[in-house]
């Protein structure tokens, strides 16, 4: 099994991401060329003279609407994909994902609860608390012994996730002021509509700080992949490391859900695809997973807003279209393995 060299894989991934960002910004009702995108960004960063060929209106569309939205999509995609990859190793379950195990649903419930109470400042904190509570509930329900089957954990996660979704819907319904169904959909299926620079900032800090922490734990994650006993014999404080990683994943999920609502399947589909190419060694896996996850969600969100223009699909529908078949394939393969 020859692996592509890490710098090459990462370089190709980053170029693809950059091209995707630029192209995604040009997609939409207002005709914008890639060169206009460069000119606007350069102008706002103060590195070039104002490109006179872009009207203030188009400049506003690029800088105030499409660029923050595309960047938010990239950051949320990177974060969700990394969260999924880490969870798969930590709970030793190939089906683990922040959405399937109920974390995203719990985070959404926490988020809408504080929004209804009118304390929006607490949004990320409440989303984190919701994610952590959902994770603890899922693992308690599934039983965390080594004999617990992956499917059982997913069932527990679905139960918790559905409960949280019902709670989220009810909270919004109860506080309804007319057009609340769009809000419900946005929290349950995810949406990046209206994402602005403050959302980019939240996601960037979360992915930057927590993602770096997870990347730094690469060696411990590698050892954990060998099993608890082997990891302990290699000097890893298994229980402590596992909880630290899970809390970090819950924090990350909470921050991302506060930005985008719960978007499913990114954390499931992307790590599995990347693992096929670069293997399980976690530093390489997580770095590339982040880049591919970012690219994936940029395109999913572009499809969500462009396919039925001017109406927007919840982005979770697009990610489920790709992710659900991956889940089906994983289940199918396990069935063969267990047969």
């Amino acid at each position: 099994m020859r692996r592509p060299p890490t710098p090459l894989a990462l370089g190709v991934g980053l170029v693809a991401l950059l091209v995707s960002l630029v192209v995604a910004i040009t997609v939409g009702p207002a005709g914008i060329a890639p060169a206009d995108v460069w000119a606007t960004v350069a102008h706002h960063l103060g590195v070039a003279a104002p490109g006179g060929d872009l009207s203030p209106l188009l400049d506003g569309i690029v800088w105030e609407l499409r660029l923050p939205r595309v960047l938010a999509a990239a950051l949320v995609g990177a974060g969700l994909a990394v969260a999924g990859a880490v969870m798969q190793t930590v709970v030793r379950n190939p089906l683990a994902d922040p959405y399937l195990l109920g974390l995203s649903g719990g985070a959404s419930l926490g988020a809408v609860a504080v929004l209804v109470l009118g304390v929006a400042v607490l949004l990320p904190v409440a989303a984190f608390a919701g994610a952590l509570a959902a994770l603890v509930a899922t693992l308690a329900l599934a039983g965390s012994s080594a004999a617990t089957s992956p499917a059982r954990t997913v069932l527990a996660g679905l139960a918790i996730g559905q409960l949280a979704a019902a709670g989220t819907s009810f909270v919004i319904f109860w506080s309804a002021t007319g057009d609340s169904y769009r809000d419900i959909l946005a929290w349950l299926m995810g949406s990046l509509a209206g994402a602005g620079w403050s959302d980019v900032a939240i996601a960037a800090v979360a992915v930057g700080v927590l993602g770096t922490g997870l990347l730094a734990a690469g060696r411990s994650l590698d050892a954990l992949a060998l099993g608890d006993t082997a990891a302990a014999a290699l000097g890893i404080a298994v229980a402590r490391v596992r909880w630290a990683l899970l809390v970090t994943v819950a924090l990350l999920t909470g921050a991302l859900v506060a930005v985008s609502g719960s978007i499913g399947f990114v954390g499931l589909a992307v790590p599995h695809a990347v693992r096929l190419v670069v293997g399980t060694a976690h530093r390489r896996l997580l770095a590339l997973t982040a880049v591919v996850g970012a690219t994936f969600l940029v395109w999913a969100d572009t499809a969500a807003r462009a396919l039925f223009e001017p109406r927007e699909l919840p982005v979770g529908i697009v990610t489920a279209l790709v992710g659900a078949p991956v889940l089906a394939a994983l289940l199918w393969r396990r069935r063969r393995l267990e047969a």
Binding site: M1, R3, P94, A216, A217, G218, R219, S220, D222, A223, A225, L226, G227, A230, L234, G235, I236, R275, G279, T280, A281, R283, L285
Partner: peptide, 26 residues
């Protein structure tokens, strides 16, 4: 001994170096 998916023999043996060196470094 476990055989997690996605690890090669060389990568597995390299894990033996885990307790040597800093846990945060490569």
């Amino acid at each position: 001994g476990a055989a997690p998916e996605g690890l090669t023999v060389a990568e597995t043996v390299l894990l033996g170096r885990t307790p040597h060196g800093s846990p945060l470094a490569g």
